[in-house]
């Protein structure tokens, strides 16, 4: 019977090199979506293949990896991705944000401030922020080239007229380096300010849509807002996390089926555990 063995990091070296080159282009033009020849991974499309290809292309033997899904290290898909990367690289994995050199994430930025020597890799379902207002790729690329973001502004304006506020909750549009409107991936508003002038390199991978983009460290990232309608983050009414007592982290609502009680707990589970032990680095 034929037997097959896989390369370090699953992808062949040519592919990794191609992805790294495209990432360099992405870093050089913050917020610009670089088309690339996305490969099919043994993980389904839409399940983090873009982030996965980035991680596998940049990871080296000395790296320590953390994978989170919705803030949680032990969510089934995070486990699956982490197991896959660990199995094809043999690298050390961790759940501690501070220990990791590469963090791959879906829909969250860790609560704990990340450093210059770390990279945060985002899994992106829709790389095109203009998809809110324009279905055609050909047209949205033209709009970016001409910095024609009028439709997006009108969309936000009409939202205010209709609902009294901008109702976009996650995937909130940001302007990067005063040039490109960018989809920050489906992170909640709570995480958007963390993109601005950050110490960390942010890499975004959309596998199904075949686009890569980046926000280099110390880049201006501003949510789109109006002078009289400012961007605001989620408000949990001052309720603390039931586990660690934090009032500053992003919370998930939990229903207790026994007591019919509703309470909140941190979405970033590793941060929550560390916070309970008083082991968090504060800025």
């Amino acid at each position: 019977m034929t037997s097959y063995s896989y390369n370090y990091g699953f992808l062949d070296e040519q592919t990794k090199k191609e992805i790294r080159r495209k990432l360099l282009q992405a870093v050089a033009i913050p917020g610009y979506q670089v088309p690339y020849g996305s490969r099919e991974m043994p993980i389904a499309r839409g399940w983090g293949t873009g982030g996965l290809q980035i991680t596998l292309s940049i990871i080296g033997k000395q790296d320590t990896l953390k994978v989170i899904d919705q803030g949680c290290d032990f969510s089934v898909n995070a486990c699956n991705l982490r197991n896959f990367i660990a199995a094809t690289t043999g690298n050390t994995v961790t759940t501690d944000t501070a220990e990791a050199s590469i963090v791959q994430t879906r829909h969250r930025i860790p609560e704990e401030a990340m450093r210059e020597d770390q990279i945060l890799v985002f899994q992106v379902p829709y790389p095109e922020i203009l998809r809110w207002v324009e279905p055609s790729e050909r047209e949205t690329r033209r709009m970016h080239a001409e910095r024609d973001y009028g439709k997006l502004w009108v969309f936000l304006y009409e939202d205010i007229v209709r609902w009294g506020e901008i109702t976009l909750s996650y995937r909130y549009p940001v302007l990067v380096n005063q040039r490109y409107a960018m989809d920050p991936s489906p992170i909640p508003r709570h995480d958007v300010p963390k993109l601005h002038q950050a110490e960390t390199l942010f890499l975004f991978g959309a596998g199904r849509e075949k686009r890569l983009y980046a926000v280099p460290p110390y880049t201006e990232v501003v949510p789109l807002q109006f002078e009289d309608y400012h961007f605001t983050v989620e408000n949990f009414g001052g309720q603390p996390c039931r586990s660690c007592g934090s009032t500053s982290s992003y919370l998930n609502e939990v229903y207790d089926s026994e007591t019919n009680e509703r309470y909140f707990s941190c979405s970033d589970t590793s941060h929550c555990a560390k916070n309970s032990q008083g082991a968090i680095r504060h800025e």
């Binding site: 499309r45 399940w47 829909h107 379902p125 009294g164 109702t167 909750s169 909640p188 508003r189």
Partner: peptide, 27 residues
């Protein structure tokens, strides 16, 4: 691509949905 993306809606969307609820309650 289409089957993968259609299936991905089975993944947890707790964070996104919480953000949606937050906006909805605000309105």
């Amino acid at each position: 691509e289409s089957a993968g993306f259609a299936a991905h809606w089975k993944l947890p969307h707790y964070v996104d949905f919480q953000a949606d609820l937050n906006r909805l309650r605000s309105v």
